[in-house]
């Protein structure tokens, strides 16, 4: 059975405007997640706020993992 698996782009891949938007939104997810968590913990703790904050933080970190991987790959391949 053919599995559809995510393939990270190679080092020769050119970053498009859409990718920049996704990188920016992922970074913003991290900021929002942290803001929600910190502000919720400072005030009243509500399960949904913790879930939202944690969710944004995890999603941002997960997406940025691919970005970091890509840049590492590119640095490895680039001539010194």
């Amino acid at each position: 059975m053919r599995k559809v698996k995510y393939q990270p782009p190679g080092a020769d891949y050119k970053i498009s405007i859409k990718d920049y938007y996704q990188i920016l939104s992922s970074a913003l997810f991290l900021i929002i997640g942290t803001t929600i968590l910190v502000r919720s913990l400072q005030n009243s703790i509500v399960v949904m706020a913790l879930l939202m904050g944690g969710g944004f933080l995890a999603l941002g970190a997960y997406r940025l993992r691919f970005v970091v991987k890509y840049f590492r790959e590119r640095r490895k391949c680039s001539p010194r």
Partner: peptide, 23 residues
């Protein structure tokens, strides 16, 4: 929608209001 969520959570969201309505 993303802008509303980002700006909303950063500048307008009050966790104490959410907590109060929840409780």
């Amino acid at each position: 929608e993303s802008s509303v969520i980002i700006f909303g959570f950063l500048f307008a969201w009050k966790p104490e209001m959410l907590a109060s309505q929840w409780k």
